[in-house]
Amino acid sequence: MSTHTSTAAAPARSSAGSHGVTFSGVLRSEWIKLWSLMSTRILLLLTLVAIVGVGALAVLIRYTFLDEMIRNARDQGQTLTPEMMEQTFPPGSGFDLYNLPNAGLQIGILVLGSLAVLFMSSEYATGMIRSTMNAVPRRTPAFVAKAIILAVISYVITTIAGVATFLIAMPVFQSIGFDLDWSTDGVLYSIFTGGLYVAGVALIGLSLGTLLRNSAGGITVLVGIFFVLSIAASFLTLIPGDFWKYVPQYIPSDAGGRFLSIGHTDGVIDPWQGGLIFLGYVLLFLIPAMIVLKKRDV
């Protein structure tokens, strides 16, 4: 390999420019960092495919189930119309179709959340963090830039995937008589909030990557919060007494999940309350991460 070097005259100051650090510059820098990794590009593309894929699968399962019910009813000489089903079952019992755009959301949470952990933890693992801090010694702008980029990318990917999933679901359910289209109550709401929820998960992932500085640890904790904790909390409902039945809805994944649904149910927090609680969790991770990043030696 040729390693020819020139002791060429050091260039005049003008060639390096003389601008200071600007926030838009830091944003552009983090954008270049994200897209210049082959692994990120592949991961983001696969995430989109995976969310739509899992969503399509969920659509198929629900379609098969509902179609079966209608056939069974017909075989017994009864007529069961979608309208009757919608009226018979209470909201939230699985017969609502407005949340179909978010059918593949769990995959999005897992992959985009992990990507967010890696966006920071890989800088610690490779030593890149020191180059980042040399260029942006105030540190906070680099973190905020990463947060904005992750939130926007998560939002956009989840929204595109949600729209795509719904485009698959709509004709399928229309074919068995369901009145499902863009104007159905809650469809646009769940597309909008699904993106916000995943963006929030990504911000928690970024914070975990910053606090733990370790990829495996950060992803493990993220999975713990969004998947294991929810299962663990469901056991609380087995404890006698009404109090414990109302506890699980306050954990991040359940509060976030409630934010994605519509309508009021007695004894359950309202969607906007779920959204606020989830936002509180995001800030609970984000703020300590920013403080620690600013103070800690790198």
Binding site: P11, S15, A16, G17, H19, G20, V21, T22, G25, V26, R28, S29, E30, I32, K33, S36, L37, M38, S39, S122, E123, T126, G127, M128, I129, R130, S131, N134, A135, V136
Partner: peptide
């Protein structure tokens, strides 16, 4: 230059420098 390995291993040298340059609006030519 404090640590020769202060670079993300998956990124090319060009993109590494480009990302650092972007923070200060340093032109590509540099």
């Amino acid at each position: 230059l404090l640590d020769a390995k202060a670079v993300h291993t998956g990124r090319s040298a060009y993109n590494h420098l480009l990302a650092m340059a972007a923070t200060h609006g340093i032109p590509k030519a540099r």
